[in-house]
């Protein structure tokens, strides 16, 4: 077997749906369009993209829940189409959100049921359930009904379920969605611990900081296509050289600031967002001195409520790549 835990080659997935009740017309939606990538053994690989980009569809094909329309997918050396059962024994997966568990059952009983579905012998199941509840810090609440768990606890129970049968490869689809910052940090630490145990992880997320903190490599996917694939450091270098100014000003001065900045005869990108009651202006430039000269006027006017100068984060890279492709 090669060093790759996942080998995706020209994966294409489309869905066909009927349009209207009486009409025989059908509509085809392409969810994933001829994507190729590999994930190495022991790697934490991130799949990033906006809503509807094709991340979850890709994860579902990799976890045997969907059949590819064409292309090939090999997981741990096995074909997901023809060796479905064997693949399922060796992978674990979670999907973000509160769905996927029985709310009226306790966390412990949910795990017992899924341990049975994964064919764990009773003694082993008892041992693994106790261990996994400990790993996700739910031992104290194991006998409470899941419907009484917080979002963070549900996500942690999802993770415990995915790890029950000690899989070599784990898919985590939006694992920290809806979790408070403390819970998300704890979950990220748990994920790091899994990497120490030599597990291979495919993580899909919206949170760039999370991807930057955890992932060895990242693929950015949009409209079903991979538009960038590299390490976080290399991706950041792709738009290196620019400096970012984040300025919070009175909303009334926004037009004036934008007008002044446009006068600068250099390449710069301006993005405006709300910072009620003010406006936050994000300026990206390769000539920071020139921008700073104009900004000094505003700083002295007393209408600037905040100014931050920084280099690129992965989020900047992501926005730049996604917007660049859309343009």
């Amino acid at each position: 077997m090669s060093n790759n835990a996942i080998e995706v080659n020209q994966l294409h997935k489309e869905f066909t749906t009927r349009v209207g009740f009486w009409s025989g017309r059908r509509k085809t939606t392409v969810a994933v369009e001829d994507i190729s990538f590999n994930v190495h053994q022991g790697e934490l690989f991130g799949l990033l993209g906006p809503n509807g980009a094709g991340k979850t569809t890709t994860t579902k094909v990799l976890s045997t829940l969907l059949l590819p329309t064409r292309g090939s997918v090999r997981v741990l050396g096995m074909d997901v189409v023809t060796e479905t059962r064997t693949v399922r024994k060796r992978i674990g997966f979670t999907f973000g959100g509160a769905r996927g568990l029985y709310g009226r059952l306790s966390g412990h009983d949910n795990l017992r049921y899924f341990a049975e579905l994964y064919g764990l012998e009773p003694a082993l199941a008892r041992k693994r359930i106790a261990e996994m509840l400990e790993v996700v810090d739910l031992t104290e609440r194991r006998n409470d009904r899941v419907e009484n768990y917080s979002s963070g606890m549900v996500q942690r129970l999802h993770l415990a379920r995915a790890l029950l049968h000690d899989p070599e490869l784990i898919y985590l689809d939006e694992p920290t969605v809806g979790i408070d910052p403390v819970g998300a940090r704890e979950l990220r630490q748990t994920i790091k611990n899994l990497i120490a145990l030599k597990k291979t992880i495919l993580l899909t997320t919206h949170y760039m900081a999370e991807a930057e903190e955890l992932c060895d490599r990242i693929a950015i996917i949009n409209h079903g296509r991979i538009i960038a694939l590299d390490t976080p450091a290399s991706l950041k270098r792709q738009v290196s050289g620019d400096t970012i100014f984040e300025i919070e000003i009175d909303a009334a001065l926004l037009d004036e600031l934008q007008r002044q900045l446009q006068l600068i005869n250099h390449r710069l990108t301006i993005q405006v967002s709300e910072a009620y009651p003010n406006k936050k202006v994000n300026v990206r430039t390769d000539q920071p001195e020139a921008v700073l000269k104009y900004l000094t006027l505003f700083i002295s006017s007393g209408h600037v409520h905040g100014l931050e100068v920084r280099n690129h984060s992965l989020e900047d890279v992501y926005v730049s790549i996604i917007q660049g492709k859309q343009e």
Binding site: L65, R99, G103, R161
Partner: peptide, 14 residues
């Protein structure tokens, strides 16, 4: 509706 169908079908038990 609860999303458990995917996890049941995605398990090794037919």
């Amino acid at each position: 509706r609860d999303g458990t169908l995917e996890f049941i079908i995605g398990s090794p038990t037919p």
